[in-house]
């Protein structure tokens, strides 16, 4: 399997602040990959470097085997729906398609027109008069009809209501399946990504916290509940992600590839959202959150 994006020690510094540090990743090709993290975690910085609109301060990055933004051939292979799904307010829907056709050698006009028609967008309407959801769909149409190999989307649904959100993600899924696209999609909401992604990368405070297939993440993370004990006493294969204690009880989220045999624990599976939340709040770099219940 080839990697759509491969980074080694990638970092970006703005002034004295590192927006992203020591990022080493292999984003698989042909998959829908979610990039999750709180605001300011470095998601946009990483995506801008993937599409070649930002140069790294340190480390290396390779996208579809080439240097990001390096020449027309590379630009043609990567589609980008930037944050807040920008469109030209003064240009009509049809003019946006014309823009796409003029600026992209691999432009697929039939796909673009079909999508616009199915979405019910009036080609003569200016983009500035579209709703947020429609504008996002227009931006997505430009990204898809460019016929890239990798489509990068930066928080495309952040400003959309739940219905528009669902429609947008559905459209994205259909296009990904139809055109055999690799997709890299960021969001600060796990629930958006859980529906559509099969691989997840989590950024926290400018670092990669977790990366893996969602099925593996779900299988490997277990919630252990039992009498109070020190997390340091756990077997070597069990890594504590977060821990909370009451006077008598301990609740631990652990990552392990082996089954838990200790009869003192009651073992539960947890959802993706809880796993991500556990990494954000717990972990080894922050004190565990005390939960009183």
């Amino acid at each position: 399997m080839t990697a759509a994006v491969r980074t080694r020690g990638l970092g970006k510094r703005y002034g004295r602040r590192w927006a992203l540090t020591d990022c080493t990743l292999d984003v698989p090709a042909g998959r829908v990959v979610g990039l999750v993290g709180p605001n300011g975690a470095g998601k946009t910085t990483l995506l801008n470097m993937v599409v070649g609109q930002l140069a790294p301060t340190s480390g290396t990055i390779e996208v579809l085997g080439g240097a990001p933004g390096g020449g027309a051939a590379q630009l043609a292979k990567v589609g980008y729906v930037a944050q807040e799904t920008p469109t030209y307010a003064g240009l009509t829907v049809a003019e946006h398609l014309r823009l796409g056709a003029k600026l992209n050698p691999r432009w697929d006009d039939a796909v673009a027109r079909r999508r616009i028609e199915r979405l019910g967008l009036d080609p003569a309407k200016k983009a500035g008069r579209l709703s947020g959801g429609q504008r996002a769909q227009l931006a997505l149409t430009l990204g898809i009809a460019k016929r890239p190999e990798l489509l990068v989307l930066d928080e495309p649904v952040a400003a959309l209501d739940p219905l528009a959100r669902r429609e947008f993600l559905q459209g994205l899924m259909e296009a990904a399946a139809e055109h055999d696209l690799s997709v890299l999609l960021s969001s600060h909401l796990v629930s958006d990504l859980e529906r559509v992604c099969d691989h997840l990368i989590m950024l926290l405070e400018a670092r990669v916290r977790v990366a893996g297939d969602i099925d593996d993440l779900l299988a490997e993370h277990l919630l252990l509940t039992g009498p109070r004990r020190d997390p340091a006493d756990l077997p070597a294969g069990q890594h504590v992600v977060s821990a909370s204690h009451t006077d008598r009880q301990s609740t631990l989220l652990v990552r392990t590839t082996e089954p838990v045999h200790d009869p003192a624990w009651s073992v539960d599976r947890v959802g993706l959202e809880d796993i991500v939340l556990a990494y954000m709040t717990g972990g080894d770099r922050r004190p565990a959150l005390e939960v009183i219940s």
Partner: peptide, 14 residues
């Protein structure tokens, strides 16, 4: 200001 440079530079044009 409008963020549209990201759209423009996302096309196949340097």
């Amino acid at each position: 200001e409008g963020g549209t440079h990201r759209l423009a530079w996302g096309q196949t044009v340097s």
